[in-house]
Design a protein around this nucleic acid. Structure first.
Lengths: 208, 208
DNA sequence: GTATGTGAAACCGTTCACAGCA
DNA sequence: TGCTGTGAACGGTTTCACATAC
């Protein structure tokens, strides 16, 4: 069955809120209360979960621990993922030092940059290597997700290199659309675009 | 007329590509070629533009310079915007130093952090101030957009403070859903969620 | 001839409403 | 009784197809 991407993003948000509930010691929650926390509709949450099975108890709700476990399994958040970063500028460096990613099971195991002065330095415990090393290191270290934090002009070329090295997924921070083969997944983190949307709404007088 | 948010995000992407075309000296472009660049459908681009007027020439296409000018006007990208940052950690510091934001007309004019050791230091030319200063500085400096780069636990409180100070829009980098009054616009930049989506697709075997 | 602007149709996700079950 | 799971209705966006205009 075809599962809409937006359903997955909602499950991700559910997982976050379930983790908070679990820490608070809450054991059971209804789709209604969960929808309130996640900012959605109860039926939508039930539908999203129904794509993967029936995890609830009729008349009661969902067991927090159990549901969190199941969603983590669905998302693949129940194991470690190895990340490689390309572009160790301001943003790239911040990502290497960003602890929450590791908490979540995503760990940077390599970093690349073409600037000679940056090669060899260590950031967040990771040594910066030249772009020529990408192909070899991706395979050697079993890196599955490539993170692009270079300037927009260089993003496509970096993506091509990562794809040739056999990467399966790309998280792109450069404000440009990257093209790659269908078997490679791409997600863009585009705060320039998000800023445009805010400026538009401030300009047009629209809210939300 | 109600204009869908996704149409605005596409116009933002169009503007980027038009800027590239303009630099290359391209003078006219069809919706088909523009759609190729932006990764969409020609009819969609024409519909998006039709929300705001008829900018094209039948039988010919769109004049690049003119269309870029019009879209910039629509998005409010034809003027300066003043930003205030809350949370000067790894990510926040990187944003302060991130030149492309200023190129786009968005300039940080203030930064806040609750950590005593950070208060008073300068990053990217901006002096870090304590959270107590938010209310006063937002008004004094005419800040319209607040950028949140604190830990998820503190994000809602920061948002409340910004809203009380009269902010109109919030760009939230914390991986949590923020609640605020309807007259305040929010956009989330949530790379933790994007990572979840990539992990899901790698896990499930789905692509795109 | 060619590409825009736009009603109409198709598609997809959301919401409703209720049967099913603890 | 109460909440889940789900078919059906709804609403909105995408795509099609063509009249219109250069």
């Amino acid at each position: 069955m075809k599962i809409p991407a937006i359903a997955i993003s909602r499950l991700s948000i559910c997982a976050r809120n379930l983790a908070v509930l679990d820490e608070k010691g809450v054991e059971v929650i209804s789709s209604g209360r969960l929808a309130d926390m996640c900012g959605g509709n109860p039926a939508q949450i039930r539908k999203d979960l129904a794509y993967f099975g029936g995890f609830g108890v009729r008349g009661l709700g969902y067991y927090v621990k159990e549901l969190l476990f199941e969603i983590r399994k669905i998302l693949g958040a129940d194991r470690e993922w190895r990340l490689g970063l390309v572009g160790v500028g301001n943003l790239g460096s911040a990502l290497l030092r960003h602890a929450p990613l590791a908490d979540r099971g995503c760990t940077f195991v390599a970093a690349f940059d073409k600037t000679p002065e940056r090669i060899g330095i260590r950031i967040g415990g990771i040594k910066v290597e030249p772009p020529e090393a990408i192909n070899h290191v991706i395979e050697e270290k079993g890196i599955e997700i490539g993170v692009i934090a270079v300037k927009p002009e260089g993003a496509q070329e970096v993506a091509d290199t990562l794809v040739r090295a056999g990467i399966g997924a790309i998280l792109n921070f450069a404000p440009t659309e990257i093209r790659c083969p269908a078997h490679v997944s791409i997600e863009n983190v585009d705060f320039s675009l998000k800023l445009d949307m805010l400026c538009y709404r401030l300009t047009s007088g629209a809210s939300t």
